[in-house]
């Protein structure tokens, strides 16, 4: 039995320690905003925050989470999150939208530690998040837009 803190609430989950957090969140806790794309940390669709840091939940075993605080797209909040989600909406970044939970979680992670990222910083933080619809031009613009609104 594992005790998880997800978006500020505590949940008890009976699972194999190897079970990826992705499937715990989606199938046991019905937090379906976090997406499955590849299962091998190639696409970033499953990105969540563990103690504020973006991690790939498909590669994070429930047995390794310990006391870590988990934040998903459903629970992410604060000034940076609002700026990022606001910029995504202002520029209408989304197309199919399936990867965007992960994109947004990665972007919040970036702007939380680097409020004025350069294009190279964006490259470094976002290159692990695949968008098959190819919304990258707007993702980059939205991160700059969010940075402006935070300044």
């Amino acid at each position: 039995m594992f005790k998880l803190t997800v978006n500020g609430a505590t949940h008890e989950v009976d699972a194999d320690p190897d079970m990826p957090l992705l499937w715990v969140l989606r199938d046991r806790l019905d937090k379906t905003g976090t997406k499955y794309g590849c299962g091998i940390a190639q696409c970033g669709a499953c990105t969540i925050h563990l103690d504020g840091q973006p991690v790939r939940s498909c590669q994070t075993r429930i047995g390794d989470v310990g006391e870590g605080k988990i934040t998903t797209i459903e629970g992410v909040s604060g000034r940076v999150a609002e700026a990022v989600q606001g910029a995504w909406r202002k520029l209408d970044v989304v197309q199919c939208g399936y990867c965007q939970s992960g994109q947004i979680m990665s972007a919040i992670g970036l702007l939380s530690t680097n409020p004025k990222p350069s294009d190279a910083d964006i490259d470094g933080a976002m290159d692990g998040n695949i968008c098959r619809c190819g919304t990258y031009q707007r993702i980059r613009a939205a991160i700059h837009e969010a940075a402006r609104s935070l300044a």
Binding site: T32, G33, V93, Q100
Partner: peptide, 19 residues
């Protein structure tokens, strides 16, 4: 005009088949 799916798709609330 603003896309009608932007808010749902940036908050994790849009329901896909997998959800």
């Amino acid at each position: 005009v603003p896309r009608l799916d932007s808010v749902a798709k940036t908050s994790g609330s849009a329901v896909y088949a997998l959800d």
